[in-house]
Design a protein around this nucleic acid. Structure first.
Lengths: 330, 330
DNA sequence: CTGAAAGCGCTTACAG
DNA sequence: CTGAAAGCGCTTACAG
């Protein structure tokens, strides 16, 4: 690997001059400029980003910490964030922590010590307050609401309303025994969605039934078995997210229970997959694209500074597809 | 952010001593050790990884370059690689390049200049030879076979055999008009699979029919429309991967064409999703776990050195599920 | 316009 | 055992 000194020597100039032509940070005589350029290409020189970062204290990198790389909600978000960051000259360092608190901690430490310029974290663990507070770079907390320093920004959707919408939709469609497969209740997203369901039921004098379930397909399948034996007369299911909805559907299909005729089903997130499977999933749409772009703008835009310490709540909306339908009156 | 000097000052020792107790790289009197440890925790000191990397020329980071984060084959692989790397004290830097050659180039440059300790690249672009050859760190090329330096290792499956197996299976199941939805033919994976199909057809005197299709669901859906109008009497479809198979199924389902009764369908990869959807997908299984672990061991294991420059070809096998079935003899 | 010098925050020979 | 010094590869005041 050629270093800046090798290039300088070959071009007959000082390292400072090489640096200046590379970065266009000062005028250099055309003659030297050309010599430098030639030397760079002859040596296949690539500046060492580590040294640069050490000096500048900025790596033009933003860490994105996600709880699971297997959940398409996060990979879609990663894709959006990636593109948005690239447009502004930043790159994304994706840290998959698989719901492990220790991995989450070490991801934060790693990002700080790697001179990341910001962190977007889709975590729900309030135990990270300490780690998150000691870091001097901007942090955007996605889908969660635990308190940290005031400089951090929060981005999430109106999950409560989403939960309500889901319940209301199934009710309107004629379901009489609606079971809510709620997500892990230590998670903000799951709590809020469930609370929406609960309040809708209370407001309308509807019985409440729920089972807790992790946000992945293994859990979804296991829970469905339990659901069917506990509530043999269920006719509407609210899943905590699309992946769980898909796994619920799988079990129903296997048992020859028809959807939506016998049981109606609604998901949450509206990941691409939800309209790819058959039948297409009725679900609550989250504006993933907008959320991701907002996160990046808070960290990378110069004007983003003003947005820190604030909460950005995005609206959700119902997407009616094929797993729900208006029941014909008897 | 406290630096090693701050800690040293507080503990009344030299920075060298602080470094020694942090890294356990030399004996330090118990007394000083304790002072240092206390100073570290009082200052919330986290060593700057960038400075460390600059000195050591190793970041304990391995880059994993993938063509698309939306394809679960790659996210499953990323998950495996991530875990395997972590076990050996390395971390993964996932670079999603979305099939863009420029992004691919810059990912390689970035990894080199970030002092990555190795690169695993699932790319198919032989134009990267130059970039890949100039780098002094080990490179593992996944799912591809373009020639680079001899020190690079290659990991892939017996795709040719997979293509044959798929054709053979549909033929055995009684399909008489098999259409191969082949992947982009500049890709090694796609070529080899298609060639397997072609050779099986030739060996058995079967007509060949094929349409090219990108490895994603948009392409899959578009191609299916074309397929159905060009081959109205098709009764067997070989998809280039599971995602495309799922999108093919979607269109068939929409057209009320029953699978496997009217048309049989087989995928490739055996991603988790393929057994999650309904009906479960018959597919060709790739040993993703083993492939990922092998890639990491080549880069991170001390003995991995000997494995460089070699090719590791993994076997595939047929997984019969619900989108194919033996037709009853007429 | 351009070079010598200092410094980013670590680590490791080198003395003692 | 421990500190002063040099150096990893850059960049940017500071002079000239």
């Amino acid at each position: 690997m050629a270093s800046i000194r090798d290039v300088a020597k070959l071009a007959g100039v000082s390292p400072a001059t090489v640096s200046r032509v590379m970065n266009g940070t000062a005028n250099v005589t055309e003659e030297k400029r050309e010599k430098v350029l030639r030397a760079i290409s002859e040596t296949d020189f690539v500046p060492n980003e580590v040294a640069r970062t050490l000096f500048k204290k900025s790596s033009k990198t933003i860490g994105f910490i996600i709880p699971s790389i297997q959940n398409p909600y996060f990979t879609q978000m990663a894709d959006v964030i990636d593109r948005a960051a690239k447009e502004l000259g930043f790159r994304i360092l994706l840290c998959n922590v698989e719901h492990d608190l220790d991995r989450e901690r070490s991801a934060i430490q790693m990002l700080i010590s790697a001179n990341a310029d910001g962190i977007i974290i889709a975590s729900n663990n309030s135990e990270l307050q300490h780690e998150l507070s000691q870091c001097e770079i901007p942090v955007v907390i996605l889908d969660s609401l635990f308190r940290t320093k005031d400089v951090n920004a929060y981005i999430y959707c109106n999950y409560y309303q989403g939960g309500m919408m889901a319940a209301e939709h199934l009710h309107k469609c004629g379901c009489r025994k609606i079971v809510c497969i709620k997500g892990p209740q230590q998670l903000f997203t799951a709590q809020a969605r469930y609370q929406g369901y609960v309040d809708f039921c209370e407001d309308n004098g509807i019985e409440q039934h729920s089972i807790e379930c992790d946000y992945d397909f293994h859990a979804g399948m296991a829970v469905t078995e339990e659901l069917l034996s506990s509530y043999p007369d269920v006719d509407g299911i609210i899943a905590c997210n699309d992946i769980v909805a898909i796994s619920i559907y799988k079990i129903l299909h296997k048992r020859n229970i028809s959807v939506p005729e016998q049981i109606q089903l609604i998901g949450f997130d509206d990941v691409h997959l939800s309209s790819l499977i058959s039948p297409e999933l009725t679900t609550i749409h989250q504006p993933i694209e907008e959320m991701g772009r907002k996160a990046i703008s808070i960290i990378c835009d110069p004007e983003g500074l003003e947005k820190r310490g604030k909460q950005f709540v995005f609206p959700v909306h119902l997407i009616e597809r094929e797993t729900t339908c208006m029941k014909k009156p008897l």
